[in-house]
Simulated scan of single mutants.
Amino acid sequence: MQQTVVDHIDQAAEDVVSLVLRGPTGPLAPWEPGAHIDVALPNWLTRQYSLCGDPADRDAYRIAIRHDPLTRGGSEYIHRFLRRGRTLDVSLPRNHFPLVSAPEYLFVAGGIGITSVMPMLRAAVASGTPASLLYVGRSKASMPFADELTSRYGDRVRVVATDQEGRPDLAALGSMLPPRALVYCCGPASMLDAAKAAFPAERLRMERFHAVPRQFVPNTEFEAVCARSGQTVRVPADESLLDALTHAGRPVVAGCREGICGSCELTVLDGDPEHRDDIGASAGRMYACVSRASSPRLVLDL
């Protein structure tokens, strides 16, 4: 973890605040476009937010948070109680949505999804790569950083407020997509579904706010062996690996509990994990919040 201090809290749009988190003792860990951090809040919640500032600025991180009263209380705390000068612990940046090299880019963002896309557009323009952004929101007042983006990038950016213009035609945009362009899309599920229908799958990269509902085989009980301590933890069919480890005194840092943030990643030394995440765990890794075992026993680096 890294210690930061809340340096600025600004109103970025209706129900959206922007935070600048400064490193009080020196440079913060480096990051690349698409990365996010876990923020440990004083109300005992940990939440994930995309970094939306300049990766070249090692002195501070910028994030933006939309107030959603129907969630578990992270945005509520930030909007109502967080104040400038507060110390916050944040994780090292993680990136499950990296910007890969391409001859041209189309970025599509919906609402708060603009946060992960902004640094990508910055990097593409800085490298001289042709790039454009379609930024869609409910209304102009609800869209954070819209004026900043249009003033910086001019006609590379198209801002669409659906209360005035309706939803843009992604299918028409897909029909005009240059043959080697990559599309990066982050936004609500309806936008991602439209993007999947409009753009070739091999050239589309997406980041979701929430996990996609899927069906899995029924849960079965298994054992998790903590290799470093020698402890064996029984994981019942009605309990997650994450919760079983916590109850056994082997807590794992966790954030989303949906398999989309990667904060609860574990190293698997033996056994066959059953991956249920939306990230795509690499070989020898698994996410304890949602994934289970397809073998009777897993050996974990714990």
Results as ranks from 00 to 15, higher is better:
E265Y: 00
V17G: 06
R122Q: 14
E202V: 07
A109Y: 03
R156S: 08
V90Q: 00
L182H: 11
S282I: 05
V125D: 12
R84D: 00
R47Q: 03
Q164K: 13
D15H: 15
T115A: 04
S294K: 10
F216C: 03
A131S: 10
G34M: 03
L149M: 13
Y77D: 08
A60K: 01
S75V: 10
T246D: 13
A56P: 00
Q164N: 07
E76G: 02
L41N: 12
A40M: 03
D238L: 02
R292Q: 06
R138F: 08
P218C: 04
L173E: 12
H210F: 12
L182R: 10
R83W: 07
V17L: 14
C264I: 06
L82P: 08
Y61C: 05
G249F: 03
D163H: 05
E202N: 14
Q231L: 09
D89Y: 02
N43K: 01
L269W: 12
H79P: 11
A124T: 12
R158P: 01
P24N: 12
A171L: 14
P144Q: 12
A198S: 15
L241R: 03
A288Y: 04
V90R: 00
E76P: 00
A29D: 09
A237Q: 11
A293L: 02
P103I: 11
G74L: 06
C52A: 10
G128K: 02
H67F: 08
R156L: 13
P188T: 11
R228Q: 12
V100F: 01
G73L: 06
S294F: 03
R234H: 07
L245Q: 07
V252Y: 00
V235W: 03
S294Q: 13
H210T: 15
A198I: 13
R276W: 13
H36K: 01
L266Q: 15
D238A: 12
Q11C: 09
A194V: 06
